[in-house]
């Protein structure tokens, strides 16, 4: 039978430049690890997730056309299971952060405005609903029973804020010069150059933008 698994399935990113399924997967795997280790919520890769889900579906259809005893069936199933795990784990770690820092994340999202949004559509709805449920719960359980001056629900004061100064492990994918680590009272600001492929441990804050633009990978 004709081999149905052509590698000519290309996707198009915003600029009309085609990218392969392999590249999409790699981006997702990197996003997964970044999200796992980053204290703050990173911009959503929802487009890549959607693209990969389509690819998975298409692959499943193709696999179903193969004979049951074809050796490729199991191999493809295993790969699809691995990709699914990566995607679910990625989405889960985002939801965990949203549940933990709901008010903070919504506040930041509002500051960034809709064209520069970090949450996907679904995540935004989830975050708002979650906050509303929390508010409702708080009111029913406590707030309505306390004297009126204390009845206000203040989400931003109650929500946890991620510690951006927390330490992370990272690998530089390209040379990054002059990363400034803020010193405290006893030590001065320290400037470090990160060579390509070198690994480091340091605070997240000074390198946050490099993680977002993909120059630095968290490990």
């Amino acid at each position: 039978m004709e081999d149905t698994f052509g590698d000519d399935d290309f996707f198009s990113d915003g600029d009309g430049e085609p990218i392969t399924a392999q590249k999409v997967l790699q981006t997702l795997e990197e996003a997964w690890l970044n999200e796992k280790f980053c204290p703050d919520l990173l911009p959503s890769q929802a487009d890549y997730v959607e693209c990969m889900m389509e690819q998975i579906q298409q692959m499943e259809e193709n696999v179903n056309k193969l004979k049951k005893n074809d050796f490729r069936v199991e191999v493809h199933h295993m790969e699809l299971a691995r990709i699914r795990y990566t995607i679910t784990s990625y989405l889960r770690s985002r939801l965990e952060k949203i549940e933990k820092n709901t008010a903070y994340i919504l506040e930041q999202e509002a500051l960034r405005g809709p064209e520069n949004s970090y949450l996907s559509e679904g995540e935004l709805i989830f975050a708002r609903d979650f906050l509303a449920l929390q508010e409702n719960h708080c009111k029913q359980l406590v707030l309505q029973h306390v004297p009126p001056p204390f009845q206000d629900f203040m989400p931003t004061q109650q929500s946890l804020v991620p510690n951006l100064r927390s330490h992370v492990f990272l690998r530089a994918k390209k040379d990054v010069d002059g990363v400034v680590i803020e010193g405290d009272r006893d030590s001065r600001d320290e400037e470090v150059d990160l060579e390509e492929n070198s690994q480091h441990i340091m605070q997240y804050k000074p390198i946050a933008n490099f993680v977002k633009d993909g120059t630095i990978q968290l490990i």
């Binding site: 100064r165 927390s166 330490h167 070198s198 690994q199 480091h200 605070q203």
Partner: peptide, 25 residues
């Protein structure tokens, strides 16, 4: 507050996580 960790493998890094980053935090 910064250290270079070249050539440490993922499993080795994972063995000092979360203790080391938490201690530094």
């Amino acid at each position: 507050s910064h250290a270079r960790l070249d050539y440490l493998t993922t499993m080795e890094i994972n063995s000092v996580r979360p203790l080391l980053p938490h201690a530094l935090d």
